[in-house]
């Protein structure tokens, strides 16, 4: 067992302390036979054909926030990147950069939460690395996860070249929850409106949808930059445009309230459990009702469609008939002065 209460530089030295940390924290939490072998590289059985491969680095302040923590985020984020490619998430690696002095209890909590999320998603964490840096050289803990996904059992690669005018755009629930949960959890913002991050692995949800329609045209998890950025990217330099109907985009009352207060646009606030899908028009309703049966899709809705006019542009139509362009955000959203 760990006799230290805080992570020391020695825990990253490769010596006895590192060894103990890996055994007592990481292998204990993530246990599977491949990881337990502690070989330099994990040897993995993979099916023939294509693989999906992705990596993501996670930094978040605060490390623990309503609805999750950096560990849950690091697993769900990479799982979702694989899932939206149409793949079945199978294996993850996890690398930790830890600031010396981090309470071991925190590290334990974070790895437990990674283990739980990995279990929920049905992925194995098969390899990893740990470095400890001097105080002030990183902000508590940074995690990088890399994932491999396979295309078996009804999973198929999503190809956006099939997108055509008339296709419907679906989202699996309310936008902006994660960004606002993290923001309100930051020490210097004393908001007391309960907002919980939507952070969740969505691969099971995606599997349901893939099983329902053999013709999903596009999927992306709307993380940093929010829904607005995904829509802008999707149609940029394309021969089609996007039309969104503002009143159909789900936004929680609390999230909208904080956004109004700070001068933020929920369209650009981060999500960690939301997927934007483009589906064949005829499939849209059944996909939405399927999504709504799941907790992560309870507020799913058709929010717009692919259009042939204004190619390359995403427009949003308001409930009362005016419209505005949706563009990419430049830089961070900053709270307004008054």
């Amino acid at each position: 067992m760990q006799s230290h209460t805080n992570v020391l530089l020695g825990h990253g030295s490769g010596g006895r302390l590192s060894h103990d940390l890996i055994r007592d924290i990481f292998i204990k939490a993530f246990y599977n036979p491949t990881l337990a072998k502690q070989t330099d590289a994990a040897l993995l059985p993979v099916p023939p054909g294509q693989l999906a491969f992705t990596t993501d680095a996670f930094v978040v302040n605060p490390v623990f926030f309503p609805g999750g923590d950096i560990g849950k985020l690091a697993v769900a984020g990479t799982v979702n990147d694989l899932a939206v490619a149409g793949a079945k998430p199978a294996y993850l690696s996890a690398s930790f950069i830890i600031e010396e002095g981090l309470p071991i209890e925190w590290l334990d909590k974070i790895t437990q939460s990674m283990a739980l999320e990995a279990k929920k998603a049905g992925v194995l964490i098969v390899t990893g690395d740990t470095k400890v840096v001097e105080k002030g050289k990183c902000d508590k803990i940074f995690i990088t996860t890399t994932g491999i996904g396979t295309f078996t059992e009804g999973f198929y690669p999503i190809d956006e070249k099939n997108i055509m005018a008339g296709d419907k755009i679906i989202i699996n629930g309310s936008i902006g929850d994660h960004g606002m949960a993290v923001m309100s959890a930051r020490n210097d913002l004393n908001l007391q409106i309960p907002v919980v991050s939507d952070c969740a692995s969505l691969n099971h949800l995606v599997k349901l949808v893939l099983g329902q329609s053999g013709d999903i045209r596009f999927m992306r998890d709307a993380t940093r930059g929010g829904l607005g950025t995904v829509l802008t990217e999707l149609c940029e330099n394309k021969e089609f445009g996007i039309l969104i109907h503002e009143e159909t985009v789900p936004v929680k009352e609390s999230v909208r309230g904080i956004c109004e207060l700070l001068g933020f646009d929920p369209l650009y606030v981060a999500n960690e459990g939301k997927i934007v899908m483009v589906v064949k028009s005829g499939d849209a309703d059944k996909i939405v009702s399927l999504l709504r049966q799941q907790p992560e899709g309870a507020e799913a809705a058709v929010i717009g469609e692919i259009v042939s006019n204004h190619p390359g542009k995403a427009w949003m139509k308001t409930a009362y008939g005016s419209s505005r362009v949706i563009d990419m955000l430049s830089g961070e959203q900053l709270p307004r002065i008054c």
């Binding site: 001068g263 009362y320 008939g321 005016s322």
Partner: peptide, 16 residues
């Protein structure tokens, strides 16, 4: 008022 400038554009008021 800058807040009005923003709201006018955001809600697409000129088009109405």
């Amino acid at each position: 008022c800058g807040g009005h400038t923003m709201a006018i554009q955001r809600f697409g008021i000129p088009g109405l």
